[in-house]
Design a protein around this nucleic acid. Structure first.
Length: 299
DNA sequence: GCCCAGGTGTGCT
DNA sequence: AGCACACATGGG
């Protein structure tokens, strides 16, 4: 994707994590919360605030290029006291194991529009497919952006997505989601300050509001509020989280399709059981899904 | 070929 | 209100 960058340019800027500032790039960028970062030769490449960025981690030392320190700290939420956040989620053996295996995972601060489109893509498919769709969209429609970290594609704004011909959308492999993406892009073009309005609302109101976009149901809404709006009480329920909650906590039925009523049951359980940072707990459980569903098979 | 994936919208009881 | 089903695409 960024071929001329493969020769490993030096990363001149550095940021040293303090001893109690737990952070690990690998689980953070590979856990499936964000879809446009890639690692090669130990260097993660992606974009922050519409600029190409490269980051590498060696223990407490982050070296990077392409953005300011303030942008780095903000994007990776290094200002959040992760230790205290995780303390509020209670002492739960399954969550504790997940935290141990994915130590340093932080929920990054995504751009709301990119997050909205990303999770429209994310319904009923796999993470590799989501990555492919978003790469295709940006390669076709995004601007080429350059900087010290090399070149990349920007994420296209709503107007650019709305005006992308249906033929080109099909070529992005959106499948049936193309219509949702098109109509949502049109709605956002008409209402460019949607994100500022959402930011003013409490979680439940924001959720109702954001579900007005076509293709945004409970799960997609919860992901957008968690990853794009820092609403950490949000507890998205996908097939994995549903299975984990069913197996580990005995909440919900093992029925085939996840009904709205059961979604509500599991979402409420998440908030009640894990507290105001339930979304953080959810993300660790999701990251640890391979291990946690193995428990189920061994029953 | 089959089943499933960070689900949602629609239509039928 | 609740349930079943279609929906594009790709990986196992």
């Amino acid at each position: 994707m960024v071929p001329e960058a493969d020769f490993c340019p030096p990363l001149p800027l550095s940021y040293r994590l303090s001893p109690d500032q737990h952070f690990d790039l690998d689980p953070t960028l590979s856990c499936g919360q964000v879809f446009r970062w890639h690692r090669a030769n130990g260097i993660w490449r992606g974009t922050i605030e519409n600029k190409p960025v490269a980051v590498r981690q060696a223990g407490p030392l982050l070296t990077y290029t392409g953005c300011s320190e303030a942008s780095l700290v903000r994007y990776f939420a290094l200002d959040i006291d992760l230790e205290n956040v995780l303390l509020t989620t209670g002492d739960d053996p399954y969550l504790a194991a997940a935290i141990r295996r994915h130590r340093g995972l932080r929920i990054v601060r995504q751009d709301p529009w990119e997050c909205l489109v990303s999770y429209l893509c994310a319904q009923n498919t796999s993470i590799p497919h989501i990555q492919r769709m978003l790469h295709n969209l940006c390669a076709r429609t995004g601007d080429e952006i350059r900087g010290p970290a090399g070149t990349a594609h920007s994420f296209p704004d709503a107007g650019a997505v709305a005006s992308l011909p249906l033929e080109e959308k099909k070529a992005c492999a959106f499948g049936y989601r193309a219509g949702y993406i098109h109509r949502t892009a049109e709605a956002v073009t008409m209402d460019p300050c949607w994100d500022e309005r959402i930011r003013e609302m409490d979680y439940e109101d924001a959720r109702r509001e954001i579900m007005q976009f076509p293709g945004v149901g409970p799960k997609v809404a919860d992901c957008i509020l968690l990853f794009g709006f820092e609403m950490y009480e949000s507890f998205p329920v996908d097939v994995w989280v549903r299975a984990i909650v069913q197996t580990c906590y005995g909440v919900g039925s093992p029925a085939k399709t996840l009904t709205p009523k059961e979604y509500e049951t599991i979402r409420r359980f998440g908030r009640r059981h894990f507290g105001r940072y339930a979304g953080y707990a959810q993300e660790y459980l999701f990251a640890d899904r391979d291990h946690l569903v193995r428990l189920k098979r061994e029953d």
